[in-house]
Simulated assay, not measured.
Amino acid sequence: MKGTLYGVGLGPGDPELMTLKAHRLISQAEVIAYPAPDSGQSFARSIAAKAIPPDAREIPIVVPMRVDRFPAKEIYDTAAGEIASVLEAGTDVVTLCEGDPFFYGSFMYLFERLSDRFPCEIVPGVTSLTACASRLLRPLTSRTDVLTVLPGPLDDEALRPKIEAAQAIAIMKVGRHLDRLKALLTDMGLLDTAGYVERASLPDQKVFRLADVPAGSAPYFSMILIYKGDEAWTLPPSFSS
């Protein structure tokens, strides 16, 4: 019998936003895998830390945060090989993923390497989209509105027509593109309807109207939400972050 590979969504960061199923699988796991940065602790592991059994084997997958996908490809090839040896021995592997495994989740790279050889189960998680909307105190979208999710690193020429065609827009991975994105939305007359959330659900979260966000860069876990549909939804005049 081969082991099962679990891709477990952890939600946006608050451990209380993990699902009951995610908590159960983690707390019973013999082997835990998770993405980790070049330096510092793994965000995914920190979310699940209290549920991880003290005797569980841990497989950190150290992935440098780079735009180029090829170094990461080699890293996931190596990680998939290590995880495959555990699964071949009949032991399940619970892989942690911030947010949802199939929504910009790193687990997808393990899934594409291993799902043809081993049973896999995906445990969905609360996405950053809904977490940020809840902190912004404004619904994400409604009725027949078109919701468009865009990565912030796209250039303005690619972003503009997609924003124009949608009624609700989420721009993720804002990071160092904050000032450029803010300038684009100002030029499009959308600054006043845009909200900004970083590190949603965490103790250090920040929530602003985009117009009030200071110039500079934003963290990787940041998002701009825009609504320009038919509903009369507005942003609060200010937020207590």
Rank of each mutant, 00 (worst) to 15 (best):
V174S: 00
A89T: 10
V207G: 00
H177Y: 14
M172P: 00
L191F: 09
V174I: 04
Y104G: 02
G216D: 03
P161T: 04
L150H: 02
M65E: 06
R117D: 14
Y6F: 09
A211Y: 07
A84E: 10
P12N: 06
K50E: 12
L87H: 06
D55V: 13
L136F: 07
E164L: 11
C97Q: 06
I47C: 06
R117M: 15
A29K: 01
D145I: 05
R180N: 09
K73C: 09
H23N: 12
R24Q: 10
A22N: 08
A168S: 10
S201A: 07
D179T: 11
R199Y: 03
K50V: 13
I226K: 05
T193V: 11
S241W: 10
L178A: 05
T95F: 12
V8H: 02
K2G: 08
K206R: 11
I224E: 02
L191E: 04
P71D: 04
V8M: 05
A232N: 13
P64F: 12
A49L: 12
C132Q: 08
M1A: 15
G125C: 10
D116P: 07
D55C: 13
G3V: 06
G195E: 02
P12V: 07
P153L: 07
L184Q: 05
S39A: 15
V67G: 06
E121S: 11
F208E: 03
S42Q: 10
D179F: 08
R113Q: 14
K182S: 09
L178H: 04
Y227P: 02
K206W: 04
D192A: 13
P153Y: 06
S238A: 13
K73V: 15
K173H: 15
L96P: 06
T4L: 07
L5H: 02
K162M: 10
Y104T: 07
A166N: 07
L137G: 11
M108I: 12
L147M: 12
T91V: 11
D179R: 03
P71V: 14
V67W: 12
G3Q: 02
D192V: 00
G9I: 05
I75E: 05
A89W: 09
L20V: 14
K50W: 11
G195A: 06
S238Q: 15
Y34K: 11
L235G: 02
S128D: 05
F102K: 05
Q41K: 14
V31W: 12
Q205W: 12
S240H: 13
R160T: 11
P35H: 09
D156F: 10
T144E: 14
I171A: 04
A89M: 10
A29W: 03
D14P: 00
P139T: 09
P236Y: 08
A33Q: 03
C97P: 01
E30S: 14
L159S: 05
D77P: 13
Y104F: 14
R69Q: 15
Y109R: 01
P60I: 09
K162G: 01
P153R: 02
P119A: 04
P219R: 11
L150T: 01
I224G: 00
S39G: 13
G7R: 00
L114D: 00
Q41A: 13
